[in-house]
Design a protein around this nucleic acid. Structure first.
Lengths: 251, 251
DNA sequence: TAATGATTGTAACATATGTTACATAATTTC
DNA sequence: GAAATTATGTAACATATGTTACAATCATTA
């Protein structure tokens, strides 16, 4: 942990780009083009947008901590390569994992403005990760220069709000069994199959919902015993999708 | 309930304004001026902004339902007078009260854009309420015309995101005792006194946190018994603020 | 003011979840 | 491939919370 913080100081120093940087455009244009922030803009337009602003690139190594929940947030942060996770933690060490964020997405974009712009979560790199930073003021300038860019940003923010809404609903209205049912149904949706190899350990699932690992195991056992699923470690076969849906106290 | 829906159809019909409406400006400029959306703009500028766009005013009576969670959201909605509450409900009738919103504020502003712009909560009037609607497309136009307006909107959205973040933290990392402690400490902060007359029934508090009313009563009793508070109906005296803080698994 | 409805207090019991500990199996590292 | 580490399964017990019910008190209405 202390070592990670040291790494942060030494190896993740911001590399400022100059005014007409082509490094980012050449190296990351593919990623940026795919970013929802630039949807509907041509390569040329994206290039111009980036070149016109002061941007910075930062590299994180696996397990590096970019910032702590509550740190001030003055930039839009785009993941160029790699992935990070966002966690909430309390002083007893309990972890609530909010999200894993992949390359091509932005970090905490809904939190950049406001009377006190602070990071909602602690950001940790899951692997070697490259991040592009755009200062808030530059961002505002881009909004006035390009309406599509502005609309894209607003769309992203509202999608993020929907994500937070879903989280609140899940945490506020569901039992652990409901939460696991939600998780399994999401995995089915993602993989398009009732036969799953879960991409998370029970511990990770527990962190997603702010519960304990043995409780996660217990719920899997109960679902197995009442024939909603066949559970064998990470291998899960969904037997009764409707019964899972019924566990989910949704709309 | 059915009666409320009928009321919605008959008495809350949108009153469209014409192109140069001065009705809204004359009647609601005081409220609008105070709205964070118009912060830093002169009366003149606010008047011009409103007059230039197609806006509508809608009236709700007490207990009228404006819209159901999941309904499509095509407008920015500003509360001119009155107040509403936003609730999430599941199919078993459990209610999670997200917020009471007062005049001078906007409803679900963070959710207006996005790939599927939908209301995050069911909106119910607490009293007779006047709402101003600005269509999404008009809003976008206003952003390009007035940078201050755009910045204000972005600030509001980020404040809303912070609100949602806090909600998630509270729901995901706290026991009922922690949630009540949070509630009491918030009331102390609002009133500036350790002697409180709570503005909510136990049932309302239960809805705020998605728990049951007897559990709320139990927690009050336990806090009373361990001398953190003196609780006598809605009258609460905080005896040990630090012990309450300790119950709150916060940062 | 009396009646009615809403709120609060609380008990007994049931259910859900956390805690702790240990054994076994699976995966990763050297 | 062996050793070390991590993940999973699970039990026993403790604690937190929900459910149901009823009595007492308070607030509102006629």
């Amino acid at each position: 942990m202390l070592q990670s913080l040291n790494n942060l100081t030494e190896n993740t120093k911001i590399e400022p780009c100059n005014q007409n940087c082509s490094y980012c455009f050449i190296n990351y244009s593919e990623v940026l083009i795919r970013n929802p922030l630039f949807r509907g803009l041509s390569n040329n337009e994206v290039g111009n947008l980036i070149r016109d602003i002061h941007h910075q690139v930062k590299t994180l190594h696996k397990n590096d901590i970019l910032a702590i929940e509550g740190d001030s947030l003055d930039n839009l942060i785009i993941i160029l390569e790699g992935s990070v996770v966002g966690d909430m933690m309390d002083f007893e060490g309990n972890i609530l994992r909010i999200e894993k964020i992949l390359a091509g997405n932005t970090i905490a974009s809904a939190f950049i403005f406001g009377e006190s712009a602070r990071l909602p979560v602690t950001i940790t790199a899951q692997e070697k990760t490259h991040l592009l930073f755009i200062q808030k003021e530059e961002l505002l300038m881009l909004f006035t220069k390009n309406k599509i860019f502005l609309k894209n940003f607003l769309d992203i923010i509202s999608d993020r709000a929907q994500f937070l809404r879903k989280k609140i609903r899940l945490l506020g209205l569901n039992t652990i069994k409901g939460k696991i049912a939600f998780y399994l149904l999401e995995m089915v949706k993602k993989s398009g199959s009732q036969k799953l190899i879960l991409p998370h350990t029970q511990n990770e699932i527990a962190e997603m919902f702010g519960v304990t690992r043995p409780s996660v195991g217990r719920v899997f056992r109960e679902l197995h015993n009442d024939r909603s699923i066949i559970a064998n470690g990470k291998k899960v076969v969904i037997l009764d999708k409707f019964r899972l849906s019924d566990l989910l106290r949704s709309d």
